[in-house]
């Protein structure tokens, strides 16, 4: 270690892997993994989301949840940013899931085509 800056750069690189254990409020993608969700392909969605997040180096937590009752619309995920409404997207495919992640989390645009609900937090 040749300088304090070198350590700080290293930390920046390493701390991404600790995001999952962080207590701080950061954006979350909550994926419906009930029987209905899994049957409709939620596992593929989960893999696509996690791949996209890794690839784009986003500070986002991926959380799983059970069935929320709208089995018809599965696969479903919710995106919650701190202090913003919780947006539910449905009828996902790995491709549109990747698109939504980029639009919502990077460009701050809600992809209205796939939104099925909006909840006040």
């Amino acid at each position: 270690m040749k300088s304090l800056q070198e350590l700080r750069d290293m930390r920046k690189r390493l701390e991404k892997d600790m995001t999952a254990r962080d207590d701080k409020e950061i954006a979350k993608v909550i994926i419906g993994m009930g029987t209905c969700g899994i049957a409709a392909g939620a596992r593929d969605i989960l893999q696509a989301v996690s791949d996209e997040i890794n690839k784009r180096d986003l500070n986002v937590k991926i959380v799983q949840t059970g069935c929320i009752g709208m089995c018809e619309e599965e696969p479903i995920f919710d995106i919650v940013k701190p202090g913003e409404d919780r947006i539910t997207y449905g009828n996902l495919t790995p491709d549109n899931a990747r698109q939504i992640i980029v639009e919502h989390l990077i460009n701050n645009r809600i992809d209205t085509e796939h939104v099925i609900a909006r909840h006040n937090n």
């Binding site: 304090l4 700080r8 701390e15 600790m18």
Partner: peptide
């Protein structure tokens, strides 16, 4: 209970050795 004690990277990721760096250089 929050980090892997055998993994120095996890210690650094949680801000480890920064106090030492500050002390030694500043």
């Amino acid at each position: 209970g929050r980090i892997d004690p055998e993994n120095i990277d996890e210690y650094i990721a949680n801000g480890g050795y920064e106090a030492m760096g500050i002390a030694f250089t500043e």
